[in-house]
Write a protein that binds this DNA or RNA. Sequence first.
DNA 1: TCTGGGGTCCTAGGACCC
DNA 2: TCTGGGGTCCTAGGACCC
Length: 412
Amino acid sequence: MRRIIFHIDVNSAFLSWSAVKMVREGQPDIRLVPSVVSGDPNDRRSIITAASIPAKKLGIKTAQPVSMALRTCPSLVLVRGDWEWYKRCSEGFIAICRRYSPVLQQFSIDECFIDMTFRCSGKDPVAVATQLKDEIRDSLGFTVNVGVGSNKLLAKMASDFEKPDKVHTLWESEVPEKMWPLGVRDLLWVGKKTEERLTAHGIRTIGDLAQLGMGSLTALVGQKFAAQLHENANGHDDSPVETEVAEAKSYSAERTFSRDYTDPGDIDRALFKVACIVAHRIRRDNFRASTVSMFIKHRDFSVQQKQTSLYQPTDVTAVILNEARRMLGEIWDGRTPLRQVGLGVSKLTHENAIQMSLFEDPKLEYYRAWDRKYDAQRSRAEDARMLAYERKGSPEGEESEPGAFSSTSVQE
DNA sequence: TCTGGGGTCCTAGGACCC
DNA sequence: TCTGGGGTCCTAGGACCC
C-alpha cells in the first residue's frame, strides 16, 4: 500500500507569528514589508532569526548578521523574538494537524509530519492537504506549506517548493521531473561542505547524485552517508512517522560575548552562568549526567573542546562547573581572546545517585542546598514572567489561546 | 558584513581487554 | 620477547538540522 505523508511547515514561522500578534494589537502587518525577527540590533553579533518574504526578495537571509541586513535595507523593520508566544502558536497549529491524523511527529517548533495513509483513503490527498492549510490560516492567522508525498523525505522536499500558503506533491513517480533538476544543496542532509565536495567532482544536481555509482559516492563522503544520499536522491526513505517524543540525549548552553574576552574573570562568570542553566535543566527533567564537556570558540571561529567522564552521574551545578573549570585550564592559556564559551552534559540517566558516603565530598550537601535555592528562585521567576505575559499578551482579556485568533488575511 | 543557540549523528584514532 | 586481530569504550572534531 502506498503511504501518504504530509509535511506541514509554517512560512517564515517566527516572523509570521510575531506579525499575527502585532496585527491583533492594531499594528501594521510586518509580513507585507521588509522585516526580520532578530536579536538586539545594537549588539554587533546579532543575527537574523527569520525574514519576511519582501525581505528575502532583497537578499536578506536567515542567520545573516543584522548589521549586514541593515546595510542592504536601511528601512528594515526589526522585531525582537517572543518565545512564549511562539510556543503557543506552535501548539495551536500542531493541535489542528493532530486532528487530521494522530500519527504525528513534531520535527521542530514549526514543522511536523503526519501519516495520512488511512485518513486519506478514498480521498484526494491534495484536497485534504488544502483543507488543512486553509483551516490553519483561517483560524490561526498564519500560513503554512503542506508537502504531500509517499514518504517523509519527499513530503519535506515538497513543502519547500514555492511558498507561501501552498500545497505541493512529490510522489516517487514525480522524482525525475520535480526533484532531479534541483541542485544537490536542496537535498536534505546536503549542507555547504558536502555540496562543495560534490560539485568539485561535477555532481551538481540531485539527478547527478541519483545516477552516481556507489563506489564513487563512498569515496567522496564515506559509506554510511553515501548509502543515505543515494537512497534519498532516488526518492527512497522508509523511516516511519515517530509519534513518541524521544528523550533528550544531551543538554548544552553557550554564550557569545559582545566582544572577545581575554580576562579569566569574565570567562569564569560566563562559565558559571552556563553551568547554572544546564544543571538546572537536567534537574528539572530528572536527569543525571555522566559526561561533562566544555568548549571555547576563538576569534577565528575555530572550536576547541574537552570532555570528561564522571565516576558517578551528577546533577549538581558545582560538580559540573568544577569539571568545566578544570578542562578550561587544559585547553585555554588564559590569554588568547575568546569569542564564546559553552558547556554541555551527556550520557544521561534517570538513576538516583548512589550514595557513597565514604567517598562523597562533604561539601556536596551544601552544593545541593544551593541548587535547591537556585531552582526555587528560578521557577518563581518563570511563574512571574508567565503571569506578566498572560496579562500583557492578551489585550482582550480571555482570548489568549491561538485557537481563538481572529482571521487575518495574509498576502505575499 | 562578520557571522546565535540548541541539538543529533558520524568518524577516526587510541586505550584496553581477550 | 614479540606478535595479531576483534570488540568496545572514550575522546576530539566535524557535518548537518531548525
